[in-house]
């Protein structure tokens, strides 16, 4: 049931992210709702969180070319963040938000470097996109936070 709801949520976010003129784009940059959703879903078990990361990353990549950067990046980030949240951190919203800040910094930092190396970077848009995406993580985390105790 939860998987079905999350799939619907991800599909709706995919439509929202890619439909022209449907989401705000201050300074010409739009938030990556799928990246925000993937990061917010790391409160789930490690395996589902990893799969959500891969799916969200693949959908983000497909719109701009072939599956690659975000798919691999989010798979790894969601795996590590979910593992950390279940082992080394107290599993609550503030911990999730803190870890999400780090994850967002890593993925968007890597995105900026990739664009710099392979041509064509507008750093202001990269910064706005990163900030907007992290802002989307906050409410999405509250909605997607898995409240059941999953400790062994």
């Amino acid at each position: 049931m939860r998987a079905a709801l999350i799939s619907s949520e991800l599909f709706a976010l995919y439509i929202l992210e890619n439909t022209p003129q449907l989401s705000l784009n201050p300074g010409g940059a739009k938030p990556l709702f799928l990246v925000a959703a993937a990061i917010s879903l790391t409160s789930d078990e490690v395996i589902p969180a990893t799969v959500y990361g891969a799916v969200c990353g693949a959908l983000t990549d497909l719109e701009s070319g072939s599956v690659g950067f975000f798919a691999v990046g989010l798979t790894l980030l969601c795996y590590f963040q979910s593992s950390l949240l279940h082992t080394s951190f107290k599993r609550n919203l503030p911990s999730l938000w803190l870890l999400s800040l780090g994850s967002a910094a890593v993925i968007f930092g890597a995105d900026f470097l990739t664009r710099l190396i392979f041509g064509g970077v507008i750093w202001q848009r990269c910064l706005i996109r990163a900030a907007l995406t992290y802002l989307c993580v906050l409410p999405l985390s509250a909605v997607n936070f898995r409240r059941n105790n999953d400790e062994e």
Binding site: P20, D111, V121
Partner: peptide
Amino acid sequence: VLRRAATDD
């Protein structure tokens, strides 16, 4: 125009 990638600047 059907879609615009959010990653395209």
